[in-house]
Amino acid sequence: MAVASARSRGRLEHPRRLWVVGVIIVAAIGFLLAKGLGSSINYFETVNQAVALRSSLGTTTFRMEGVVVRGTVHQTSRGTDFSMRSHGVTVPVVNTSSPPQLFAPGRAVVVVGHFARGTDKFLSNEIMVKHSANYVAAHPNRVKPGANGSS
């Protein structure tokens, strides 16, 4: 037990390989810590926060969260336009990507993009659909399935 250096070594136990593995792992930890302390702490601004920060945000790219307002979703030649609302504040979104399968009015979404210069519009090229941890069985006889989707 006292002398371990004499034991048979596996593939990973080669000193040079261990160094390479160690460097990769330390680099990955550093990268993930930087990501965590950077983009993860303030992952998105809600619509009202974004509007409040409108002047300081300028045209920088960030993530904005809100609920898709019913009756505002329009298919355009470039993508889908809709309005997003949070805490009573609404922002029109011009989106140039195909929305995910679960994208629907009344659902919470996170869009990636920036405010258009000189207008109140938000230009987005990515939509992510948020959902809650409520899992309710869909009833086939319900008039409006998905009516109490995440909000």
């Binding site: 160690g22 792992i25 330390v26 990955a28 930890i29 993930l32 810590l33 990501k35 965590g36 950077g38 983009s39 993860s40 702490i41 992952y43 929305p99 995910p100 399968q101 679960l102 994208f103 990515e126 939509i127 992510m128 659909v129 948020k130 959902h131």
Partner: peptide, 25 residues
């Protein structure tokens, strides 16, 4: 399938990826 993206750098995903790498270490 649900959000529409394979990956995003939110706190849960980032901290879980970190957890994986830490114990790999």
């Amino acid at each position: 399938a649900t959000w529409g993206v394979w990956w995003t750098w939110d706190a849960r995903l980032t901290s879980t990826a970190l957890l994986f790498v830490l114990y790999l270490g």
